[in-house]
Amino acid sequence: MSLFAPAACPRLVVKVGSALLVDAGGAIRRDWLGGLIADIAERHAAGQQVIVVSSGAIALGARRLGLPKGGRASLEDAQAAAATGQIALSGAWAELLGDRGLTAAQLLVTLDDLEQRRRYLNVAATLGRLLTLGVVPVVNENDSVATEEIRFGDNDRLAARVGQAANADGVVLLSDIDGLYDRNPTHDPDARFIERVERIDAAVEAMADTRSASGMGSGGMVSKVQAARIATAAGAHLAIASGRVERPLSRFADSGRGTVFVARPAQPARKAWLQGRLVAGGTIHIDAGAAAALQDGRSLLPAGATRVEGRFARGDLVMILDEAGQPVARGLSEYDAEEAVRIVGRRSDELEAILGHAPRTALVHRNHMVVA
């Protein structure tokens, strides 16, 4: 596979982390950024559409405002730093892309913009139109209004969700590490490099490390593996490659040094969106028979549920866990939490008497569910 051949990957998302874009003093690394933009311009000239997901606003704003701890001492500091730094960040991208004859567009999104279906479709439409106009969208989380409870918190997963919304064929996470290792290479020199991941299972997830090598970014290998799960479920390959080199996209294309997570067969658009959603309103625990039924493509009936947790309304996302507490599926609940609690374990012919109205047969219908 090639993430840089337009025929194989017509639409590409490139994520740039804070540690690559901003130096220790809080200034933009303009020479490095210019090299990356030269790479992007080459891809654009070859016919590839490129979306950038760029961190760096908080780091830049913290320097300008003189805030401690890189602007992350409090939520209020982070919001102020983001509001201040985003102007400088967008200006740098627009200027350097303009030097290459490319037009930049800024798109700031929140978690809710991609979790709510209508707003997600609006984001998708905007990205699609910008790309058809030959523009390079530069996307970031809108940290100036995001809260601790409702935010991505890292741009790895944001990049995967943006790739999903844009129907991208590939996502490249430029990082302070060159890929996935079976152990943290910072602490273990014998750590083995993983070049290709066909399937994200428990063994792959166990290799991830929550720490960022730089300490500047908000993500780690865990967030990158989570991003890979989102992207590959949407039919896009995802690569982790080193950004600590000049012309990082060219270097990755020439050397192949990086970890590639191989895309799975693309799901229908609505189910791919469900697969990528990050915030669940509650949890439904199920028995072994129900777990087997879901694997066979059936709906979740109340009789197969054993316990309900959380507060959610009808139509909210819920996680579905097996008897061992492992995720089996996720989907949109046909009932609110209060009604779901009342009908757990009950047969379909009992529901009307319990609820006092004609019930919906499924607790979570298969058309609104994705199996893990």
Score class of each variant (00 low, 15 high):
73 A>H: 11
300 L>I: 07
154 D>E: 04
22 V>C: 07
317 L>R: 13
228 A>M: 02
175 S>K: 00
160 A>T: 04
100 R>L: 11
152 F>L: 04
55 S>A: 07
180 L>F: 00
333 S>L: 10
107 L>T: 10
188 D>T: 13
321 L>I: 12
118 R>I: 14
61 G>Y: 03
350 E>T: 04
20 L>P: 04
330 R>Q: 15
226 Q>M: 11
343 I>R: 00
304 G>I: 04
344 V>D: 05
212 S>K: 06
200 I>F: 04
120 Y>R: 09
288 A>V: 15
308 V>R: 11
36 L>W: 06
201 D>G: 09
284 I>P: 01
142 N>W: 05
279 V>Q: 15
118 R>T: 15
59 A>Y: 03
87 I>A: 14
57 A>W: 04
325 G>K: 09
180 L>P: 05
66 G>P: 00
126 T>N: 06
230 I>R: 09
1 M>G: 14
145 V>N: 02
11 R>C: 05
215 G>E: 00
303 A>M: 08
24 A>K: 11
172 V>S: 01
70 G>C: 06
43 R>I: 09
109 V>Y: 08
191 A>E: 03
217 G>N: 03
224 K>W: 00
103 T>K: 13
175 S>M: 01
149 E>V: 14
108 L>R: 03
347 R>G: 05
324 A>W: 12
111 L>G: 11
230 I>W: 10
57 A>Y: 06
96 L>P: 07
255 S>K: 09
155 N>D: 01
338 E>V: 15
240 I>W: 00
146 A>R: 05
335 Y>G: 07
133 L>E: 13
206 A>F: 11
290 A>K: 02
165 A>R: 08
131 L>F: 06
143 D>G: 05
335 Y>W: 06
49 Q>S: 15
230 I>Q: 10
164 Q>W: 11
217 G>E: 03
243 G>A: 01
315 G>S: 10
293 A>L: 06
106 Q>H: 07
307 R>A: 13
74 S>K: 01
277 R>M: 12
166 A>Y: 06
113 D>E: 06
239 A>S: 04
148 E>L: 09
270 R>C: 12
298 R>Y: 07
297 G>H: 05
82 A>M: 01
163 G>V: 05
353 A>Y: 10
220 G>Q: 00
206 A>K: 11
300 L>V: 05
216 M>W: 10
80 A>D: 10
258 G>S: 00
123 V>K: 07
295 Q>G: 15
298 R>S: 12
75 L>A: 03
138 V>A: 05
228 A>L: 02
38 A>D: 15
272 A>I: 07
116 Q>A: 14
325 G>F: 12
48 Q>R: 08
273 W>Y: 11
230 I>G: 10
230 I>H: 09
155 N>H: 02
196 R>C: 12
129 R>E: 14
271 K>I: 12
369 M>F: 07
120 Y>C: 11
282 G>I: 11
40 I>D: 10
263 A>E: 08
172 V>F: 00
178 D>M: 02
255 S>A: 09
300 L>Y: 00
99 D>A: 15
182 D>M: 06
50 V>N: 08
232 T>E: 07
154 D>I: 04
314 R>P: 12
184 N>P: 05
163 G>A: 07
190 D>F: 10
93 W>D: 03
160 A>R: 09
326 Q>C: 14
256 G>N: 03
245 V>I: 09
365 H>R: 08
158 L>I: 06
268 P>N: 13
300 L>R: 02
33 L>D: 05
291 A>Q: 13
58 I>Y: 01
14 V>F: 08
